[in-house]
Amino acid sequence: MRKKVIEVENLVKRFGHFTANDNLTFEVYEGEIFGFLGANGAGKTTAIRILSGLSSPTSGKVKVAGFDSGKQAEKIKKNIGYMCQKFSLYEDLTVKENIMLYGGIYGLSRSQIAERTGILLDKLRFREYENKLISELPLGLRQKLSFSVAVLHEPKIVFLDEPTGGVDPITRRQFWEMIYETAASGITVFVTTHYMDEAEYCDRISIMNEGRIVALDTPGNLKKQYNVSSVEEVFIKIARPDASHPPAPSPGSG
């Protein structure tokens, strides 16, 4: 039996009359690459805030890395990493300074930081960029670096938001290889994205619609079940079964 790192049972989150998360139940395992999908405003952002300890559920049980979201939020934060495409690194700091900064934030000791920085720079073949400003780095390298920094403190789970949006195909595939490697080392990778071709890379995916999880399986099984050839088509079938009606406006940006 694989170890569970995220356990969500009957999670409900309400804002006034609006139910953002309606009875979510799912589990994510150690070393798994889990895709968390949904249309704008389906309730993904709310759920991720709860999972990362930034917000507490209205009702239901949420355990992340063995800690209760809401009661032990601070402990959760120490055990997760986060990377989003828009912002992760300070552009006016050097590569090394960024690594030191994040190591310090996550409470690593000086010797730990020095040791891991060395490993990281060697693995990425980044030695030549060590003292360069982030703003001088090519986009692809920045992306890889910010992922490495997000897992520098060896978290149990790393959250990735559209990790490979807008990068070139080579960087993109190298990036997924890094993600596979990280997952193989036992870190759970939790991916949210609008781009269904990114979802194809995940071990399992869940699709949210109007606050509920409406599908949860491997990409392969879902494609079989809906008799289509891509996750994108699965998503469209689920998220808008009757495409002729205009969508209901979503509260919040999703």
């Binding site: 949904g38 249309a39 704008n40 949006g165 807008g166 609008h194 781009y195 269904m196 994108e232 998503f235 469209i236 998220a239 808008r240 495409a243 969508p247 999703g254």
Partner: peptide
């Protein structure tokens, strides 16, 4: 189509 979900993109 940047930042827009798959359904809206397809539409």
């Amino acid at each position: 189509t940047t930042g827009v979900d798959a359904v809206s993109r397809s539409e």
